[in-house]
Simulated assay, not measured.
Amino acid sequence: MAQDGMFTISEFAELSGITRSNLLYYDAIGILKPAYRAGNNYRLYSSRQLELINAILSLRSMGLSLDAVREHIPNRTPENTLDLFETQIKALSAKIDDLLQLRESIEKRAETIRLHKDIKAPLFTIEVRSTETIFIGRLCASAPNLDVAYFHSFLKQCREVGISHATQIGQIVFMESALAGSWDAAGCMYAKTNKGSDNIEEGMFAVLFELSQDYFDDNHAYYEKFMRHVSKNSLELRGNIYIEYPLDEMSENDPKKHLVKIFSPVRQR
């Protein structure tokens, strides 16, 4: 110990559990300056500063930035500390919401792969589905314009409302267009997330699985094949057509094995 109640920087670092380099940095940015500088420019810290460094480390462990800590240290009062904590609680709650959404997206992606990895396309089948919440893009485009630019425009919309980039997305062809065979009519994109206010209804769905080499392929042939299967099985549409890619660039290296899923709610004629 340098003198009664005072510690050299090395002693203070050992007692506080913070590195010497961090103490030098805290000194440089004004978070914790030595209590005294000796004539040889040695930094000396007081025993009271052990309590202060513990408070600083506690604030940092709560996720507070160095700037927030630096601003708070000279302005500590119960009221200011409560304000600081309440602000941090809100920030942490937002992060928790984002992490929960990200986990949900990953879980949905994983479940999609599990359910579809052994599908042998082409395949037409019937599914019974529960209601699924989705976010529909506010912009629509004609089918030929559901291209790279439109795709990234939709992703931007998702980011604006806090939807993770990891969320699975799909395309919609409106029922009126499908019944008229107008595959170039306006359609939309959607994201499979609980943050949406729309939904894919529950009930019986006709489903067509096909192999697709490109997300932006011309899907007209798939749509027409889907409608032929619907008619052949004495079914009729009762809602929009949805297009998803259960196995895509994320999960399958071979583009010839990318899986497209076309499905729509139907009823018996």
Score class of each variant (00 low, 15 high):
residue 160 E to D: 05
residue 154 F to M: 03
residue 148 V to W: 07
residue 158 C to I: 06
residue 172 I to Q: 01
residue 183 W to H: 03
residue 181 G to P: 04
residue 163 I to G: 06
residue 153 S to K: 05
residue 155 L to F: 07
residue 161 V to P: 02
residue 190 Y to T: 09
residue 189 M to A: 13
residue 180 A to C: 10
residue 160 E to P: 00
residue 179 L to G: 08
residue 174 F to C: 02
residue 149 A to C: 08
residue 170 G to T: 06
residue 178 A to T: 05
residue 158 C to T: 07
residue 182 S to M: 13
residue 165 H to V: 11
residue 169 I to H: 07
residue 181 G to E: 07
residue 184 D to R: 14
residue 186 A to Q: 12
residue 159 R to G: 15
residue 170 G to N: 05
residue 177 S to P: 00
residue 168 Q to R: 02
residue 175 M to Y: 08
residue 151 F to W: 08
residue 148 V to P: 00
residue 159 R to M: 13
residue 173 V to I: 15
residue 176 E to L: 10
residue 176 E to D: 14
residue 149 A to F: 05
residue 150 Y to E: 05
residue 157 Q to M: 08
residue 168 Q to N: 04
residue 145 N to Q: 11
residue 190 Y to C: 05
residue 188 C to R: 14
residue 150 Y to C: 12
residue 189 M to F: 11
residue 165 H to P: 00
residue 174 F to Q: 06
residue 185 A to C: 10
residue 157 Q to V: 00
residue 170 G to Y: 04
residue 162 G to S: 01
residue 173 V to N: 09
residue 153 S to D: 06
residue 166 A to N: 08
residue 182 S to R: 14
residue 181 G to T: 10
residue 154 F to P: 00
residue 152 H to F: 14
residue 181 G to D: 10
residue 178 A to N: 02
residue 178 A to W: 01
residue 182 S to C: 13
residue 152 H to I: 06
residue 164 S to N: 07
residue 145 N to L: 13
residue 170 G to K: 08
residue 158 C to V: 04
residue 160 E to I: 06
residue 185 A to S: 15
